[in-house]
């Protein structure tokens, strides 16, 4: 077998393994992928923002959705705290049942290696096309304080978060 034949056989072998793995694992088996990011255009999306609330806040007064420009509290930028926004978005969009383990998991993103100065309100943000514009609304999901956790009483499962990390 010459070098060309050997090389093309190796490529062919990897290709077969690649195809089998992505076909049996919903298109993803790192580093093999069918690369479906941004393939479903026009669908509503779900992301997350975190807001810093007043220090004495222990309960959420209203769980109603608000327009994105009317977010309560102050911005809590995640990147300077070493938290990936996609991870927060995935929690709020993919968790269908908020088991105690899931609640602890989301809470640990903010508290595993640092203390909270003020309560944090985690909000689920949904965007959808409305004729020629995009409507964006945010719904409170969870209030995380130093010692307590206040969870939305009836949060329906959401669409899958879509952004692709780089």
């Amino acid at each position: 077998m010459n070098l060309y034949q050997r090389s093309i056989r190796i490529i062919g072998g990897v290709f077969v393994v690649y195809a089998l793995l992505v076909a049996t694992h919903l298109g993803e088996f790192w580093p093999f992928s069918i690369y479906p990011m941004f393939s479903q255009a026009g669908n509503p999306w779900t992301r997350a923002v975190v807001r810093e609330m007043p220090a004495d806040m222990e309960r959420v007064s209203s769980w109603d959705a608000v327009p994105f420009q009317d977010l309560p509290g102050a911005a809590y930028p995640l990147t300077p705290r070493g938290i990936n926004t996609n991870d927060v978005a995935n929690y709020v969009s993919k968790a269908e049942t908020w088991t105690p383990q899931r609640q602890r998991g989301l809470r640990s993103l903010f508290t595993k290696s640092q203390d909270l100065d003020r309560p944090l309100l985690v909000m689920r943000v949904r965007g959808a096309l409305n004729s020629d514009s995009v409507s964006v609304h945010a719904t409170p999901v969870m209030l995380v304080t130093r010692d307590t956790l206040d969870l939305h009483p009836d949060l329906a499962p959401s669409t899958v978060a879509t952004s692709d990390g780089s």
Binding site: F38, A41, G42, W45, R47, A48, V49, V50, F68, A75, Y76, P77, L78, T79, P80, T85, N86, V88, A89, V125, G127, A128, L129, D132, S133, V134, V136, T162, S163
Partner: peptide, 20 residues
């Protein structure tokens, strides 16, 4: 229009990451 939707999504992400 699909890109309008994605830019709005990224606006939320960038705000979430950096606050602006």
């Amino acid at each position: 229009q699909h890109l309008l939707l994605w830019i709005a999504e990224r606006k939320v992400d960038v705000l979430s990451k950096f606050g602006a």
